[in-house]
């Protein structure tokens, strides 16, 4: 079962987060609370806690406002998403029978230029 936080709990959990900031983060969709039908209300999950922690950290240490934060976190999501997809592709390649795997890795080798090459 995944752990969920109420609004009060998430504010207590994330250093530097207060209610005003949380409201602004929700408005700018930096974090999207999970709406629950019964009892009606919103909750936050562990991923939201980690995301809010990162948002508060970047906001404080880099003096980013909410709009800049939303952009940065959007890029972080895309970047991690792309890494996740790349991992899925590599795992799929890894699982191929040897001759096919070699074919794919050779083809990839021709397209990817190494940094120090």
């Amino acid at each position: 079962m995944t752990l969920v936080y109420t609004e009060e709990e998430i504010i207590a959990e994330v250093p530097g987060l207060d209610r005003t900031l949380l409201v602004r983060f929700v408005e700018t969709r930096i974090v999207i609370p999970l709406q629950r039908p019964s009892p009606p209300g919103v909750v936050y999950s562990q991923i939201d806690a980690a995301r809010l922690r990162l948002a508060c950290e970047l906001r404080e240490s880099l003096d980013l406002n909410e709009d800049a934060l939303a952009v940065v976190l959007g890029l972080v999501d895309r970047f991690h998403g792309a890494r996740g997809d790349l991992r899925a592709v590599l795992e799929a390649v890894e699982a191929l029978p040897e001759p096919h795997r070699r074919q794919v890795t050779d083809a990839l080798g021709r397209r990817i230029i190494p940094d120090d090459g």
Partner: peptide, 20 residues
């Protein structure tokens, strides 16, 4: 470790990642 976002960020079920 659980407090870093990257632990969740790349997961296929991350609700934030399908914005791309």
């Amino acid at each position: 470790e659980a407090q870093f976002y990257r632990q969740y960020a790349g997961a296929q079920d991350n609700p934030y990642r399908d914005q791309q």
